[in-house]
């Protein structure tokens, strides 16, 4: 069967992104149940609660995870929920720090009182288990080098017992490590925001309650922005995404029609 030059497909994909982006298409986004569960869990936390957010992704996944992380941080700061941010991924600290500072500045959150970024420590499993014993034994300072004993919001926090929810924004198997070692061993409640590649494998954990909620890639980000009432890149990009998905579906259908025509002709 004939095959068109793949560069024509590349051009079509590029156009399917550029044109809707220039036109600013805005279609409504409904909210799926796992996203609603995530949102409801955070909403049910009283003011003064503490959430630990693990920014377990690097630049290669920021498109999907940054928008949802922003929406969650906005919700936390609006509701006076304190945020302890960490990362298990070596190429994440600069990215995570910038994101937190950006949202904190917008919401006038105070570093050390409303939020703290502890940074990166190598060895995901031992970091997760170590924090179950004593967070200070893993992070003796925050990312900027301030001793953890001098950070006001860390005064009454020793380990997972004082963390009301752990949110892992994950692009790899860190989420499974959190489930296996923090949820199972220390009974830490966990919610996740994950990249498209690993969405499908999260559903068994969602059904058992090992995950209390799930944000699914850029769709989850758009849904969460919708719930938080702060539409931003997630909403914008999921609309652009519509046209590329449509294009790929059409390409698959055309590919199959031509395949069947040629197969019938060739007997």
């Amino acid at each position: 069967m004939p095959n068109i030059d793949r560069r024509i497909v590349f051009i079509l994909v590029a156009l399917a992104v550029i044109i809707p982006m220039l036109l600013s298409v805005n279609l409504p986004v409904s909210v799926s149940e796992p996203t609603q569960k995530f949102y409801d869990y955070v909403e049910a936390l009283p003011a003064g609660s503490t959430i630990m957010i693990a920014f377990d992704y690097g630049p290669s996944s920021l498109a999907e995870l940054n928008p949802m992380a922003k929406a969650l941080l906005k919700q936390c700061f609006d509701r006076d929920i304190r945020v302890i941010a960490i990362t298990l991924v070596v190429d994440a600290p600069t990215l995570a720090n910038a994101l937190i500072q950006e949202v904190a500045a917008e919401k006038e959150a105070v570093e050390g009182e409303d939020y703290v970024f502890l940074g990166f420590r190598p060895g995901p499993v031992q970091v997760i288990l170590g924090m179950g014993i004593d967070i200070a034994s893993v992070y003796d300072t925050d990312y900027n080098g301030t001793a953890i004993s001098e950070i006001p919001m860390m005064q009454n926090i020793t380990n997972y017992d004082q963390i009301d929810l752990l949110v892992d924004f994950a692009s790899s198997d860190t989420i499974e490590s959190w489930i296996i070692y923090a949820n199972d061993r220390y009974n830490q409640q966990i919610a996740a925001g994950v990249t498209g590649v690993i969405i499908a494998q999260m559903f068994p954990y969602l059904q058992t309650g090992q995950l209390v909620g799930l944000l699914s890639g850029i769709l989850g980000a758009a849904e969460y922005e919708n719930l938080v009432g702060a539409p931003a890149k997630g909403m914008q990009w999921i609309n652009v995404e519509s046209f590329v998905h449509l294009l790929i579906v059409i390409l698959v259908i055309i590919g199959n029609i031509t395949y069947f025509i040629y197969r019938t002709r060739e007997g």
């Binding site: 220039l22 499908a200 914008q236």
Partner: peptide, 26 residues
Amino acid sequence: IGFGSAFGNTVMGRVALLIQRVDFLL
């Protein structure tokens, strides 16, 4: 069906990365 779900979601993920870069460029 499981792999089909994974593929459908992977497409969403990869396209999002492209959209982010185009967003940066434009």
